[in-house]
Computed example of a mutant assay.
Amino acid sequence: MNISYKKLWKLLIDRDMKKKGLEKAAGISNYVISEMTRNENITVETVGKICKALNCTPNDMLEFVSDSE
Rank of each mutant, 00 (worst) to 15 (best):
K18T: 13
L62V: 05
T37G: 06
G21N: 09
N2Y: 11
E69S: 07
S66H: 08
S29W: 00
Y5R: 13
K19N: 07
L8H: 11
T37K: 15
W9M: 04
T57H: 12
N2T: 13
C56E: 11
N39H: 07
W9A: 02
T37R: 14
V44F: 15
T57F: 11
L12A: 04
M61Q: 07
K24P: 04
L11Q: 09
D14Y: 03
Y5I: 07
L22R: 10
E35T: 11
K6E: 15
N2C: 09
V32H: 12
C56F: 02
T37F: 03
G48M: 08
D60H: 02
L11K: 13
V65R: 14
Y31W: 07
S66L: 05
S34R: 13
M36T: 05
I3C: 14
N59K: 12
A25T: 07
N41A: 12
K6Q: 15
D60G: 02
S29N: 01
K18L: 08
M36Q: 10
F64P: 01
K52D: 13
K18C: 06
N39M: 03
K20N: 09
L11C: 02
K7A: 13
M36H: 06
I33T: 01
N30M: 08
D60K: 07
F64E: 10
Y31K: 13
K19I: 00
S34Y: 04
S34D: 03
L22N: 09
K20F: 05
D60L: 03
A26M: 01
Y5D: 12
T43K: 10
G27Q: 10
V47N: 14
K49W: 00
E45V: 09
V32G: 08
E23Y: 04
S66W: 05
G48F: 05
S68V: 01
N59T: 10
V47R: 15
C51F: 03
K6S: 15
L11D: 04
V47E: 11
S4I: 02
N30S: 15
M1V: 13
D16P: 06
R15F: 00
K6I: 09
R38I: 02
K18W: 01
I3G: 15
S68F: 01
Y31G: 11
N41C: 06
S68G: 01
S68I: 02
N41G: 04
N41M: 10
E40I: 05
N59A: 14
L11N: 07
N30H: 12
F64W: 09
T43I: 00
Y5F: 15
I42L: 10
W9S: 03
K18I: 05
M61T: 10
A26E: 01
K20D: 11
G48R: 12
G48D: 09
T43F: 03
